[in-house]
Write a protein that binds this DNA or RNA. Sequence first.
DNA 1: CCGTTAACTTGACGGTTGTCAAGATAAATC
DNA 2: GATTTATCTTGACAACCGTCAAGTTAACGG
Lengths: 219, 219
Amino acid sequence: MGADLMEESTGAVPSLAPPRRRGTVDKHQERRDQLAESALVTLGELGYARTSLRDIAANSPFSHGVVHYYFRDKNELIVYCVRFHKSTCVLRYDDVVESAGSSEELVDGFVAKLRETLTADAPMHRLWYDLRTASMFEEPLRATVALIDGWLQDMVWRVLARYASLAGKGVAVTPAVAYAIVDGLFQQALLAMHDQPAESLDRIDRSVRDLLPSLLLSA
Amino acid sequence: MGADLMEESTGAVPSLAPPRRRGTVDKHQERRDQLAESALVTLGELGYARTSLRDIAANSPFSHGVVHYYFRDKNELIVYCVRFHKSTCVLRYDDVVESAGSSEELVDGFVAKLRETLTADAPMHRLWYDLRTASMFEEPLRATVALIDGWLQDMVWRVLARYASLAGKGVAVTPAVAYAIVDGLFQQALLAMHDQPAESLDRIDRSVRDLLPSLLLSA
DNA sequence: CCGTTAACTTGACGGTTGTCAAGATAAATC
DNA sequence: GATTTATCTTGACAACCGTCAAGTTAACGG
């Protein structure tokens, strides 16, 4: 994990990478990931546009100049960071999907994970929405955003398809619509996490439980 | 319209405003609105964080220093702009709501307006999402964002309540959930307007038509 | 027509930013 | 251990930002 990033080249390790030496697995790539993890903390706190390379370096073991040794520019670093994080993040519900023995159990596991990630990973989710919004104004970001949006849509679809299967019914909406709905609920919950965290968690819990059945065919 | 901004003071016309002269209705306020309208064009193109006061002034009849004559700082200008625009924007569907004679007619009018605004006002909608996302990282923005989010939620609810009434049924979801769903669909449509505008419009058209009935009680 | 005040312009300030070149340090090779 | 290569630091650069003070122009009141 990390190096391949979901088997899709970021176009991020170009000629600037120094020639590898021996069988030691890519020390260069390890540093990139280490730097990305440091950067993600700062980016999650300050957001995309408000984070400078010096902020990132300050929260890392390195100095601000090192960024250009491992990344071409700021955009490549940030895109790599978000992609690095999301590539594992989109697998969050997969064990719930696989281990659930009934539709009720799946819903319970799903909302539990939703609450958990809203509580623990709020800065990362904020960063994702920040990057997605920025992509509406900066064309170079759109390809990455579209890719990750596809991952998330597939993630939601895996949950919903399994849910329908366990309930012995079909799904009434397309993957795109299902994702839009869940994402809309999630984003509202995230927005409310600052001022009313407890109420926000309860609301999305109840909303999802109420809404999921209506996404199935009655047949 | 414009001066009162939905009967809610922005806290934006403080002591710095010069004493008014005669009965001529607030020349000062007129200039504020004129400046806001100029700024909105630039903000819609470049987004919140990427727009400088010099960019705004360049697309206006004024110089860059004039901003501090009418607004305390950049944030106050931007907040005023978005609020200025949204305060009329949230009334967009009201005539459809009032003039619709049947539930089908209301749906037709609703999706027609949706398509229209996605086509014509895409930059303004991008700006709104940009500001809402920025509010997750900048506390001073949250009050305004929460206020406008409330307006939008009410707007969606007026449509849905009227739709239910015309169909002789009740609404199955809360205002917050209804807004989250519509907003999720709308945001996905807006994101796709850059690369696939036609497909995006068709998709949200069909999605809304499919989804609205399922938000009503079957009773 | 004159004086006063509002409206607006100009230019500068301190600060921050991304980027990069040049040098220092550490590591690995022979 | 010497030399070559990779890694990392430092400092500087040009550009840009928001803000504001000082000065200019225009409009209004008498």
